[in-house]
Design a protein around this nucleic acid. Sequence first.
DNA 1: TTGTATGCGTTATCAT
DNA 2: ATGATAACGCATACAA
Lengths: 388, 388
Amino acid sequence: MSDVARAAGVSTMTVSNVVNDRPGVSAEVRRRVLRQLADSGYRMNVSARNLRSGHSGVIGLAVPGHDVPYFGSLAMHIAREADQRGYRVAVEQTGAQEAGEVAAIQFSRAMDYDGLILSIVGMDLEKLEVAPTFPIVLLGERENPTAADHVSMANREGSRAAVEHLREQGARRIAFIGGPDTPDQTIHSLRLGGYRSALEQAGLGVDPALLFDASEVTMESGRLAGHRLAREIRSARQEGRPAPDAAFAITDTVAFGALRGLADHGVTVPEDLLLVGFDDIPEAAFMVPALSSVAPDLAWTARRAVELLLERIGASGRPGGAESRQVREETIPWSLEVRESSTPVRSQQGSVPVPGAEHTEGSAMAEQDAFLVAQTPPSSSTSTGDAS
Amino acid sequence: MSDVARAAGVSTMTVSNVVNDRPGVSAEVRRRVLRQLADSGYRMNVSARNLRSGHSGVIGLAVPGHDVPYFGSLAMHIAREADQRGYRVAVEQTGAQEAGEVAAIQFSRAMDYDGLILSIVGMDLEKLEVAPTFPIVLLGERENPTAADHVSMANREGSRAAVEHLREQGARRIAFIGGPDTPDQTIHSLRLGGYRSALEQAGLGVDPALLFDASEVTMESGRLAGHRLAREIRSARQEGRPAPDAAFAITDTVAFGALRGLADHGVTVPEDLLLVGFDDIPEAAFMVPALSSVAPDLAWTARRAVELLLERIGASGRPGGAESRQVREETIPWSLEVRESSTPVRSQQGSVPVPGAEHTEGSAMAEQDAFLVAQTPPSSSTSTGDAS
DNA sequence: TTGTATGCGTTATCAT
DNA sequence: ATGATAACGCATACAA
């Protein structure tokens, strides 16, 4: 910058003013400086500016893994949202849910970010020893005991709606594919809670034989659970007892794996079994069969998360700043997307290579739409959440 | 740091030495400083350190979209690789392939990174006006005219192997699902080139009627292509001319969409049509049917990309640094993963809810393995690439 | 409208 | 083994 100043015959301060487009610079001088700026190929040293200004203009986003579709989709929305507010988003992965360690790493790593949006998955919130001065917004499970803002998923309500929907579709023995129940609030315990509450409302209890473990929340664990579920269906039918006729998977990713696992054993969805997932990842609508899913409003989530974080960043400078602000807790609006996987078929489609009806691109689109919004969600499953 | 120094009765320099674990500090003093460090809750100011050291310890990774599975997978590998070398990775999304603009944005944004790994998709490399002093490694298409290191996909070879494989499986009319041919090197033109070259080697030409557009490289565009392909199959059969019996999709994501589009019209894979994709995204093995795919070695890719970038970062300080180093061009090793989607079935599995054979978890695993490595890739499709 | 002095938190260098 | 000093590149405060 001093080079540019010398070449333009002004002081570095004037150059700084030009670069940052501040008023108080004559048009003539500005022109000269701009010219020099271009010629010299000058570029701001961001570190120096950060050092001086005390902020970096980037917010961090910590997700469990870059390769998890749900978080990929979330990251996209958050990046879009932050862009609009002049912030950059740097996405990091926490690797897994190794509570304390990962959280600590995340935190220390985030020190040069202005703030952090942290997706916690199955991690003990108590272990999150966040310095109360650092702006953080938590994303994820419900009922947050920490002193940090929190945008939370309606895990219980969403899961309940999914199971109620399955019952409305005629399902009588509904399996749960997910992790074990735990005292602390994890994705597993909460969504299992919703499953239980739907059953209890129908006057039923949870049959342990209908709980199929997929604690890892991966496609592979879903597949293995699918294998076990298929075997249970077979056994039940052979032994003449009622077989599972539906399943709620804790995650679309798990559901995807389960779909594969069931197929491995010749069990088809929705003919043999109805299936609903959670997250409504972009892939859900494209699976065969298209996967019904509890769909959190990701655009809303991204907007609120960024807004809350920016508010806290703004407050963290001023007296009685970040630490004293009241903690906010908001719940993500959601809906239930009903697709093929939970819609009992009237007549088997079969593998007919040549469809009977004529199809143009337009009619194909219409057909596709019919698949995507096959059915209006029941009233209990419409959007909810306090978008305060 | 000066607070800590004062409290510990030493100089800031000594504190710095302790913090950075440098030699030349007596055990006694180190203990005292460490204690103060802990008590005071001190944390390094990264901006200041960066200002002083001249580098940030962060490398950027620019991908088209956070929500593209292939790049999610890639990001995961790169993050792992960089971690091992003490670097952090910040992932940003370029939004799309808007050549010049996006590249410029990326570049300016990357200024406080030590370097950038840039995934270019369908973007004109010529438009990438990169300041030759900034360390960049390009990831993506082949034959790079820019003055930057480049780790490239074996687009032609991989595509050719896929199509050859389809022919070996008995396919006679192989469709291409992807974007249009262009003079410049895009993912479309290159993979189409491989498709063409495989056909020509078999003494055939490219039939324009077998080119199904999916230029957007999304699930949705794949689905629409699937619709058109299904209609072509129907028409051909009705009119008694040979129908497409296989397809090569430019990307697994497109293949996934195509699978859905075909299913919309009752066309099943592999019974009615064989299908191979490209990228071998994690989902490929879990699709029903499991998707055959050209599988680039992502771990290798990540390692080389990071290594090349770090070399260039290292050189950029020294005299005759980054700009003068010779540009490196390497090709990613790959293999062909053959799965169900390109394996003609002997006897139709059908939708039998109760499999005949007994299944334990173990035998289920065995069955799964059988699916995953259903067949050894032909010799022409084994790993290749100059891992120099 | 423009310039000067000063300091942000850290580390390299040189001295002790 | 430890400390004093200067400097990294910029922006705030104030003087001119």
